[in-house]
Design a protein around this nucleic acid. Structure first.
Length: 227
DNA sequence: GACCAGGCACATC
DNA sequence: GATGTGCATGGT
């Protein structure tokens, strides 16, 4: 028990150190790109396993069609939506997922992200996870970036960075990764927002499947040999 | 042409 | 519970 606690706090310190180095290196990230909570939520679904540049094209198509709102998408055929979001890839799957989310938004919150924001956090997260096409990362992205709830988002880059530092196993569960952040850091929306954005920034540059650790600003914090 | 991208659901063992 | 597979466009 004592051993576990000291392990956890040492991992916790590394979590704080990594944030410090990343923020000093890269500065503010200004995430999430999106004009409204609704746009951020749709973007969270569209960006699943997809480059953000492609998502922007899809979002722009929705804007041009004056359909980037709950009513617009609710009244649209799934096939029509698929055509608009085509650049985001997996367009048939994502059209269904966006439709599922809109259905939930309309039925439970009258189509209002403001109303959704008033929901109890734990309840809302569970309900989001029930929606087809919304898994833990998408749910938490919506909670943090659209609704400003203090929930840490775990993504592929976060997993890779932590596993390469020997802090976590790559295939550890989402919840275990998330718990490490929740237990180590002050529960603060701006902090969580910035930290996750920094993971994506450093990950894109240096922590891809083929890593460039020798160039990474985190290399001095590595406690394991550089691959 | 290969590799990668801010995942998820579903089938199967 | 672990592991494998389909989904698809567009940039490097």
């Amino acid at each position: 028990m004592e051993h576990q606690a000291s392990q956890e706090s040492s991992a916790g310190k590394k979590i704080s150190d990594i944030y410090k180095t990343l923020s000093e290196t890269f500065g503010l990230q200004h995430w999430w790109p999106g004009d409204t909570p609704f746009e951020v939520a749709i973007g969270a679904i569209l960006t699943q396993n997809t480059n953000w540049g492609n998502v922007e094209k899809a979002i722009n198509n929705l804007k041009t069609a004056r359909s980037l709102n709950a009513k617009g998408i609710y009244g649209m055929a799934e096939s029509e939506l698929a055509v608009l979001i085509r650049p985001a890839g997996y367009f048939n799957i994502k059209a269904r997922r966006v439709k599922s989310f809109i259905g939930f938004l309309v039925e439970d919150y009258h189509g209002s992200m403001e109303k959704m924001k008033e929901e109890d956090l734990r309840t809302l997260r569970e309900k989001l996870l029930e929606v087809n096409g919304i898994g833990p990362e998408t749910a938490d992205s919506i909670l943090l970036y659209a609704l400003e709830k203090p929930v840490f988002v775990i993504d592929a880059y976060t997993r890779r960075v932590l596993s390469r530092h020997g802090i976590m196993d790559l295939d550890e569960s989402y919840e275990v990764f998330q718990h490490l952040f929740h237990s180590s850091l002050k529960k603060d929306v701006k902090y969580y927002n910035e930290y996750h954005a920094l993971f994506v920034r450093v990950g894109k540059l240096y922590c891809r499947p083929k890593p460039l650790c020798h160039l990474c600003p985190l290399k001095d914090l590595l406690l394991v040999p550089i691959p």
